[in-house]
Design a binder for these strands. Structure first.
Length: 283
DNA sequence: CCGCTGGCCTGCGAGC
DNA sequence: TGCTCGCAGGCCAGCG
């Protein structure tokens, strides 16, 4: 499932479309019944013959910017996947649930594939409007920022509204640090040896700092390894698999041994999401 | 304004 | 072997 590092890895490959001219953006019939794919032809005909100026990332959102407004808001959801193709004939072989086809004047083209329909692909009037969109407006620190802004993170972590929350729950809240999902939440807490159910107000200064450094280390390492690929889900637009799953120590390792102490990894449910952790190492 | 809950959606794997 | 069923988790609508 794409979290910040995966979305950033995808963005870097999509940037090969930068300054390239769009021929046509088309919605497939598969996209029609989902409101987050605003698939009316007239809205997208506007992009024909425009060049992609840039592709931005805000948390896990991608924003496609062109020579003229509007912009496109694109989210991978759980199973959204971009695939670069040289010929439209490859769609049949390389995708299973194609939703949007971005046909360029010259190849490569890009296809957005989304089996579970949690993804989004819709227009927004302008970059200014995107920045007013609450899920983007409220974002805290981007966790992939290098070097990690530790002081700003500590200030945010100290906000009153967060003090009664469990840290495992709060890490999923992008108003603190964005780009963390269920995998890197668990791995960051393990790295910092902090129990996911610890109340934020009980964290010492040292623990809070260590957690910030652990988040940064985990996300940057995941990006370096081009994200986590398993279950045949996340892939890069080139088709390449990420390699970060190789070093997951707790995520989806229920009943396996902790590499540090051999204790069996456990799983709890926090805010309707699973959190994996080592009950011995994480205090 | 805020926080919390449950819905969306379907591929997969465990269990029978 | 083939079927059922529960789980997986991004966001967000709707509620209080």
């Amino acid at each position: 499932m794409p979290e910040g590092p995966e979305v950033e890895a995808v963005r870097r490959e999509l940037l090969q479309l930068q300054n390239q001219e769009i021929d046509k953006i088309t919605f497939t019939p598969l996209s029609q019944k989902y409101p987050k794919y605003q698939g009316k032809e007239h809205e997208f005909s506007h992009f024909s013959s425009q060049k992609t100026r840039d592709i931005h990332r805000f948390n896990k959102f991608l924003v496609w910017e062109f020579e003229n407004e509007p912009v496109i808001l694109n989210h991978l959801g759980m199973t959204g996947r971009w695939t670069m193709i040289k010929s439209l004939k490859e769609i049949e072989n390389k995708t299973t649930h194609p939703k949007v086809i971005v046909r360029m004047k010259s190849p490569p083209h890009a296809v957005f594939d989304d089996s579970r329909n949690f993804g989004q692909f819709r227009t927004f009037p302008s970059m200014e409007e995107i920045k007013k969109y609450p899920p983007i407006k409220k974002l805290g620190i981007d966790g992939l920022t290098d070097p990690f802004p530790l002081e700003e993170y500590l200030t945010r972590l100290g906000e009153q509204r967060f003090q009664q929350k469990q840290i495992g729950d709060l890490l999923m809240d992008a108003r603190l640090v964005s780009g963390i999902g269920n995998i890197y939440k668990a791995e960051s807490l393990y790295e910092a040896k902090i129990h996911p159910e610890r109340k934020v107000s009980t964290l010492s200064e040292e623990e809070a700092e260590l957690l910030g450094k652990s988040i940064s280390k985990t996300l940057l390492r995941a990006f370096h390894d081009k994200g986590s690929s398993f279950d045949a889900r996340y892939r890069l637009p080139s088709g390449e698999e990420g390699q970060a799953q190789r070093w997951h120590k707790v995520y989806q390792r229920l009943d396996e041994s902790c590499p540090e102490c051999n204790t069996k990894i456990e799983k709890i449910i926090q805010n309707n999401r699973s959190t994996y952790y080592c009950p011995t190492c994480q205090k």
